[in-house]
Design a protein around this nucleic acid. Structure first.
Lengths: 130, 130
DNA sequence: GCTTGACCTTCCAACGATGGTAAGGTCCAA
DNA sequence: TTGGACCTTACCATCGTTGGAAGGTCAAGC
């Protein structure tokens, strides 16, 4: 499998596959005589793992840990759970932060009549003098 | 007022004030003979406006529009409301996206016993074969 | 054999917002 | 005059991803 096929099979762009290799998230794969990268089923499996972890919001460093935990048969579930829990806590904190912003903004938007007049609570609030 | 004082008064770092000037978000301010930037009350007011807009999650392009709407006495509230509504819609979409991720992750974390055993639904899910 | 087009390679740059650091000039008070 | 706080510009880094440029490879069709 060339990198294009691996990209289609894994859902990760060829660009990113090269990037993951360059940054050490995945090992360097075998090459053909002309330098083309070759991928096997195991590589695709790993790439899919990465795609799902990214979709779950894990960053590269976390994915690196997840990968090594995945490949370590001896790992205790505890470690994985802790990593995921930390990520989940960050996610929840982020959600709350965004919700607070959205709440305040909703308030302002609701109070803005939004017609041709010039008075606007949204701008007034951003420009307030306190 | 020098840039340091302006930074303290506005809550925006000197670094970012220079950056905003370089990228055209704020106009170039007057300089002393030796090249020091000088800020007046109006400038501080503008910087505070920007800080609040950033805190509300608006990006630079949106803030640029907000600033020009703020400075245009003739602007209809409609335009401001539309801009804010679009941003709010993006915020809400983002929140939902994160909530879906958090929900799925919570599910997995809850089902992982997290002890010394090796079986782990979290890794199993990321590595699933479908 | 040659052309064409799809594919691959590496390298370099950009996004957006912010932080850091380095090398140097300025201001003010002791 | 010296020291320290402040300012200047310029460059590099982050994070994940995308884009482009310049060039090599492969396979099919003529």
């Amino acid at each position: 499998m060339n990198i294009g096929q691996a990209a289609r099979a894994s859902g990760i762009s060829a660009k990113m596959i090269r990037h993951y290799e360059a940054t050490g998230l995945i090992p360097k794969v075998a090459r053909s005589l002309s330098g083309y990268r070759h991928y096997g089923e195991r590589d695709i499996h790993t790439l899919r793992f990465i795609r799902r972890a990214r979709a779950a919001g894990f960053n590269t460093a976390q994915i690196k840990k997840l990968l090594s935990l995945w490949q370590d048969r001896q790992r205790p579930a505890r470690e994985v759970k802790q990593l995921a829990s930390e990520h989940l806590a960050e996610l929840k904190a982020r959600i709350i932060e965004l919700e607070l912003i959205a709440q305040a903004l909703t308030q302002l938007v609701d109070h803005c009549h939004g017609d041709e007049r010039q008075e606007c609570p949204i701008l007034d609030n951003l420009a307030r003098e306190d």
